[in-house]
């Protein structure tokens, strides 16, 4: 197990994918926060807006870690390294569990850093615009914690989807099309179904308390959304482990 964790961490450190994803996550955090702070008319920034500015980029970070998870798994099939992985560790279930856990942790870490970065920008930028930086209170910290955990779960979700579908480009494109186009359409036209779809459920977990638009009256409560998220991720992960154990590697 330890050696598998070491191998995963070396895999992450020895290519540019992780760095690229880190840069992308930093950009989607910094750019919206800076733009909002710089260009919002002075009177319109109150405490609540200030707080939402700070997490403006974080929903994009969840898509980045999702793609990161998919790339991490499908890359093994694409480059044929899965053969070496399974030769060294023929108990494939363990390999998959380690990968899911390692990627979940990386996803959490990415969101944690994104939130820290956003708060740093807020603490510096807001006072320049004459708005005081809202020091995170207990509720804000709870929001952050939810976002961090959800980012980890979504990264693992990406790994599991990658293990199921294997084809890199198809999986990335298919997942993004589903999350960004198909689900929103279903949510718009069949909200009672849409409420239960995975990416909508994830966003209900992390939807903001302030100026909340995510959870509508017929939406799920936070604990419900969280449980359903866990259910989705557990189901897809178990399926991924199960299928990986049975599949021929040729």
């Amino acid at each position: 197990m330890i050696s598998l964790v070491r191998a995963e961490s070396l895999k992450l450190r020895s290519t540019r994918t992780a760095i690229g994803m880190g840069i992308a996550a930093a950009l989607v955090t910094v750019v919206p926060a800076v733009l909002l702070i710089a260009f919002l008319p002075k009177g319109t920034i109150g405490g609540d807006e200030a707080r939402s500015i700070l997490i403006a980029g974080s929903s994009l970070v969840t898509y980045i870690v999702l793609v990161f998870g998919i790339l991490g798994m499908t890359g093994e099939y694409r480059h044929g390294t899965i053969t070496y992985t399974y030769l060294a560790a023929p108990r494939r279930g363990r390999v998959m569990v380690v990968k899911l856990v390692v990627y979940a942790l990386v996803g959490c870490l990415a969101m944690l850093l994104a939130l820290l970065l956003a708060n740093l920008i807020g603490a510096i930028g807001l006072p320049i615009r004459g708005v005081s930086y809202p020091t995170p209170d207990g509720a804000a910290l709870a929001d952050y914690a939810r976002q961090i955990v959800t980012a980890g779960l979504i990264t693992a979700f990406g790994v599991a989807l990658g293990a199921l579908f294997r084809a890199q480009v198809v999986t990335v494109a298919g997942t993004l099309i589903w999350a960004l186009m198909v689900e929103p359409l279903i949510v718009a036209f069949k909200p009672h179904i849409g409420t239960w779809l995975p990416f909508n459920v994830f966003s209900q977990v992390i939807s903001l308390r302030i100026g909340d638009t995510g959870a509508t009256t017929d939406g799920l409560s936070r604990p419900e959304a969280f449980l359903v998220s866990i259910g989705y991720i557990a189901a897809v992960s178990v399926l991924a482990v199960f299928i990986s154990m049975r599949r021929d590697v040729t």
Binding site: S14, T15, R16, T17, G75, H79, G80, T81, T83
Partner: peptide, 10 residues
């Protein structure tokens, strides 16, 4: 084995 490989960036 045939059809195994390495990550090109490593």
């Amino acid at each position: 084995l045939d059809a195994s490989g390495f990550h090109p960036g490593r």
